[in-house]
Measured scan of single mutants.
Amino acid sequence: NKFNKELGWATWEIFNLPNLNGVQVKAFIDSLRDDPSQSANLLAEAKKLNDAQA
């Protein structure tokens, strides 16, 4: 379904953000699993944090 596809894509993108540490990645992935409907918002937050830590 739509959420599974978005969840998978967001998970892959978060895993590939180079400036996040393992704890941050795990926290974002756990949040995605808790509420897949928020995948776009969580991915945006992860990208912002990644950019801030560059």
Rank of each mutant, 00 (worst) to 15 (best):
Q24S: 01
L17K: 01
A44P: 01
N16G: 06
E45Y: 11
P18G: 07
L7N: 08
K2H: 14
N21F: 05
E13I: 15
N41R: 13
K47V: 06
F3M: 05
D30W: 05
D34T: 11
E6H: 07
F28M: 02
A10T: 13
A52G: 07
N16T: 09
L49F: 02
S39L: 11
I29Q: 02
Q53S: 04
W9K: 10
R33I: 13
D34L: 13
N1H: 11
E45F: 08
W12S: 09
P36E: 02
N1K: 05
T11G: 08
N16P: 01
G22A: 11
A40M: 14
N21Y: 05
I29V: 11
E13D: 03
L7Y: 12
K5N: 15
P36T: 03
N1Q: 09
N16V: 04
S37Q: 09
A27C: 07
A40K: 11
N41A: 12
I29R: 02
F15L: 07
G22N: 13
W9C: 09
F28G: 00
P36K: 02
N50V: 01
N21I: 04
L43H: 03
E13H: 10
N41M: 12
I29E: 02
N21L: 12
F15V: 12
W12E: 09
Q38Y: 03
A54I: 07
N19C: 06
N21H: 08
A52W: 09
V23K: 12
I14P: 02
D51N: 08
L7C: 06
N4T: 08
A52E: 12
W9R: 07
Q53P: 02
S31I: 10
A40C: 08
L20Y: 00
K47G: 02
N19Y: 15
V23L: 12
F28I: 04
L17V: 00
A54G: 12
N1W: 02
A46V: 02
N19A: 07
N4R: 05
L32P: 00
K2Q: 14
N50S: 10
I29D: 02
K26C: 07
Q53Y: 07
A54P: 05
A27E: 12
P18H: 07
K5V: 10
Q24M: 02
S39H: 12
Q38M: 08
G22D: 14
A44L: 11
G22L: 13
L49H: 02
N41E: 13
L20A: 00
A52H: 08
N19I: 01
K26M: 13
A44M: 11
S31N: 10
N50Y: 03
A27Y: 14
L32M: 12
L20M: 01
A46G: 01
E45Q: 11
K5Y: 13
E6F: 10
A46L: 03
L43T: 03
A52R: 12
G22V: 12
E6L: 14
F28C: 02
N16M: 11
A40V: 10
L49V: 07
P18N: 06
N19F: 15
N19D: 03
A10H: 09
F28K: 00
S37V: 04
N19S: 04
D34V: 11
S39Y: 15
D30C: 09
S31M: 15
A44T: 08
E13L: 10
A54S: 11
A54L: 07
D30P: 00
L17F: 08
K48L: 10
N21E: 08
F15R: 11
D35W: 05
L32D: 00
D35C: 05
E45A: 07
E45N: 03
L49G: 00
I14T: 02
W12R: 10
L42P: 00
A40N: 09
D51F: 08
I29H: 02
K48I: 12
L17T: 00
A40L: 13
A54N: 11
L7G: 03
V23R: 10
W9P: 07
W12F: 12
L49Q: 05
A54W: 08
S31D: 03
L17N: 01
D30Y: 04
D51Y: 08
V23H: 13
N21T: 15
L43A: 03
K47M: 10
L20P: 00
N41H: 12
G22M: 15
W9Y: 13
A40Q: 11
V23D: 15
D51Q: 08
K26G: 04
P36I: 04
E13V: 15
L17Q: 02
N4C: 10
Q24Y: 01
S37C: 05
F28Y: 07
A27V: 10
K48M: 12
N50W: 02
E13F: 14
A27P: 01
S39R: 07
F3R: 01
T11M: 15
E6T: 05
N16I: 12
Q24H: 03
E13C: 09
N21S: 14
L43E: 02
L20I: 02
L7Q: 07
N16C: 10
L7I: 15
L43N: 02
N16L: 12
A10W: 13
A52T: 09
I14H: 01
F28H: 00
S37I: 04
F3Y: 14
N1V: 07
K5I: 10
K48N: 06
L49P: 01
F15N: 11
I14L: 13
L42V: 14
N50H: 01
K2C: 12
V25P: 00
P36Q: 03
L17C: 03
W9L: 13
A52V: 10
L42T: 09
G8L: 15
T11F: 15
S37A: 07
T11V: 15
A27T: 11
P18C: 10
K47P: 01
S37R: 06
Q38D: 07
N1E: 12
N16K: 11
F15E: 11
L20S: 00
L42Y: 06
L32Q: 01
A46T: 01
I29A: 04
A46K: 00
N41C: 06
K2S: 12
